[in-house]
């Protein structure tokens, strides 16, 4: 069995297990078009990587994935840099706040608990949303087109009125939308905090929000989201390394290799599978991970002591 020693986590891990985890997350990334960072950190926790190290190293791994994606999208003209910079500004502030929150949590020994609890909430929300959305999509396929068309504008109007009421409206030509700068700033800040606390890129929040709330076209959404995630992850990685000493570079590198290979397999497989069935499968995986984490929080632990700093 090939093992690897992680110098910052200060423990050994099976190399094939880490490559496998990266591969599974990469596979999901290729299948579903999400980064999978939100799934990788909980999986790392399950194999015994300290929570703070798992989250910080996951951010480091996302830097690599986001940089290749951003580069490719920028070449294709699919990045709205004006929107991306506003998201980034919010993300930098949110990331700095998140890293300080983690530092505080480490100092009080609550980092592990807080990261797990945040994951339970986020995975629960995302998994439930995906499941309901997939089931609804399967049903909508059977609903007459005229009825769906009648319902759509009614749902959008309330949100549209709220967006129009916000101050500092600006045109975003590439995305062909006119919205308040408050929205991307706030969204970026939220993703920045989550990025630091959970070690995620935030694409799983960013993409649906950009599509459904900001009404941006899908091809620009992915590129712009990756652009913002790249810089937010860079910011979080550097801050985590400088302030919390929790980035395990070797761990990030191994995960990156696994996820890269997995993503290629996933991209190939996704062409042969039906989208809604895939979404239900993904929702099942997310909810199963959440249940496992809930059990870890509510069942009596093997020992009633833990190390300080969530390690």
């Amino acid at each position: 069995m090939l093992h690897i020693y992680l110098p910052v986590a200060e423990r050994g891990a099976n190399l094939l297990t880490l490559l496998g985890l990266g591969g599974v997350v990469g596979l999901l990334s290729g299948l579903f078009g999400v980064g999978g960072g939100f799934l990788l950190t909980p999986l790392l926790l399950m194999i015994g990587i300290p929570p703070a190290v798992a989250a910080a190293s996951d951010s480091n791994q996302i830097v690599a994935a986001a940089s290749s994606g951003t580069f490719a999208h920028a070449r294709s003209g699919n990045v709205d840099f004006k929107m991306g910079l506003l998201l980034l500004l919010g993300g930098l502030v949110g990331g700095a706040v998140g890293v300080r929150v983690i530092k505080l949590l480490i100092a009080t020994g609550q980092a592990g608990f807080a990261i797990r609890l945040t994951y339970v909430v986020m995975l629960g929300l995302i998994g439930s949303y995906m499941f309901v959305d997939s089931v609804r999509a399967l049903r909508t396929a059977r609903v007459p087109v005229a009825r769906a068309a009648r319902e759509a504008p009614r749902r959008a109007s309330a949100w549209a009125r709220l967006v129009q009421a916000l101050p500092w409206q600006v045109d975003f030509e590439r995305s062909a939308v006119r919205i308040s700068v408050v929205l991307p700033l706030a969204l970026g800040a939220l993703v920045g905090v989550l990025s630091a606390v959970m070690g995620v890129g935030g694409g799983f929040i960013m993409v649906p929000v950009m599509v459904y709330l900001l009404r941006m076209p899908m091809h620009v959404v992915v590129g712009t989201s990756l652009f913002q995630i790249l810089f937010t992850s860079v910011n979080v990685t550097v801050l985590q390394a400088a302030m919390n000493r929790t980035v395990d570079f070797l761990l990030a590198l191994v995960l990156l290799v696994g996820s890269t290979l997995g993503a290629q397999v996933g991209a190939l497989a996704s062409r042969r599978l039906k989208a809604d069935q895939l979404k239900i499968l993904m929702a099942g995986i997310i909810l199963a991970t959440m249940v496992a984490m809930v059990l870890g929080l509510v069942l009596r632990p093997a020992a009633l002591l833990s190390y300080e700093g969530g390690h």
């Binding site: 960072g37 994935a65 940089s67 992915v222 990685t237």
Partner: peptide, 23 residues
């Protein structure tokens, strides 16, 4: 250093596989 190496690795991966991945 971790960021620079990760960016370089990401760009290398993009170059080798020439694919765009969502995140």
């Amino acid at each position: 250093v971790a960021v620079v190496v990760a960016v370089a690795a990401g760009l290398l991966v993009g170059f080798v596989f020439g694919s765009v991945k969502g995140h």
